[in-house]
Design a protein around this nucleic acid. Structure first.
Lengths: 211, 211
DNA sequence: TAGATTGTTAATCGATTAACAATC
DNA sequence: TAGATTGTTAATCGATTAACAATC
């Protein structure tokens, strides 16, 4: 596998391969070919084969990949095999939904604490995770060397929160707020952009109404 | 503006222009140039200019666009000016968070009802929206001619729910379940894929640790 | 008029797809 | 061996960027 040479489009396809492989029955065939994977996911088979070649060298002509090894290779490549700790800012409905989502450990993500501007929430627990006042964030992040921040505050507060996170050592930001964030280089912002998805759906529907 | 000729990458950028324009102070300058927009959003100015030209013809040399008209053009293009009704399936934590999110009307989306497999939830209300048993979905969708379905059930149930939606007239599916969905042509599936975002962040962090 | 900004035409870049050689 | 499947090299396609002409 060749590190550093992976493009974003490829990277975004890898999780779907992984999800499909993991959903396969345990007692099914031990091997799976790129061809079969492509067919199942409605993708081009050359594309799948090329993607897999980037993360694994376990492919053998005529037999394909050993399912288990391919899963392991994908998980390792995606960093799902070691846990990343994250803090979440904004313990509103969406924030609480994310706190309560039990599936993140599968992706090597652990939300270790939530922070909120509302002082009254300080000390509360939600889904087993502590909620603190935002004023406690600097101390917490530095002490635990947290690298990822999840932003679930309203758009108007997002930039401010983002600045605070970066000032306290965060290197990667996952934001659910519909707002553009200005960050220094080497800090990655990933937008979970509902507006984007809705735009695609909305335009599709209008096109269908017309045509 | 030229309909039908718009590509997905362009489409996905439009909402961020709109969000930025709407966040601008009401009492600020009435005009804004593609150049200024590009600078604010850290984008190439030719790209922004080209994108805007696709949805509006209000650009004038030396002055740029009239902010209000550009907002209106973007909203119209994205279909945010007329409301799309949607049903939501899976009234768990995430489903309830979406039900309670008040920002969707800004995008022309209205979740009119939620459905859940748990019969005990039938008839309950959440954030002012009714929750029904899934068995009532066919009748509801056909009667109201609902075109969009939002899937917030576990991955294992997603395909089944998707099939049910399509059987009852849904043309666009927005899914939060980490599962690939098989659908007939002309049905659009938009994956709100947390795993995808996490993959990008996770690989960025590992790369940063190494380098 | 001069200069900023527009929209467009041409060049570059990157990703996908097709063709093919290698191999178990 | 024959055939399925792999990985790679070359061709195509589409999107971005650069250069430029138009215009207020």
């Amino acid at each position: 596998m060749k590190l550093n040479e992976i493009s974003k489009p490829v990277l975004k396809r890898l999780p779907s391969y992984l999800a499909y492989l993991k959903a396969l029955p345990e007692d099914g065939p031990a091997n799976i070919s790129a061809t079969a994977l492509a067919a199942a996911l409605n993708m081009g088979e050359v594309q799948v084969r090329k993607d897999l070649a980037l993360v694994s060298d376990g492919g053998r002509p005529k037999v394909g990949y050993l399912r288990e090894s391919l899963i392991a290779d994908l998980e390792q490549f995606l960093g799902y095999d070691n846990t990343t700790e994250a803090v979440l800012i904004g313990a509103g409905k969406l924030g609480q939904a994310l706190l309560g989502y039990s599936g993140f450990d599968e992706y090597g993500l652990e939300i270790v604490a939530a922070f909120d501007a509302n002082e009254e929430m300080d000390g509360k627990m939600e889904s087993g995770k502590p909620i603190y006042s935002i004023s406690r964030l600097p101390e917490f992040c530095k002490e635990r060397k947290v690298l990822m921040g999840i932003i679930t505050v309203p758009a108007s507060a997002a930039q401010e929160v983002c600045d605070l996170l970066i000032a306290n050592g965060i290197k990667a930001v996952w934001t659910f707020a519909p707002a553009h964030l200005d960050v220094p280089p080497h800090i990655l912002v990933q937008y979970e952009n509902m507006a984007t998805s809705l735009a695609v759906l909305s335009v599709h529907l209008s096109a269908q109404m017309r045509g």
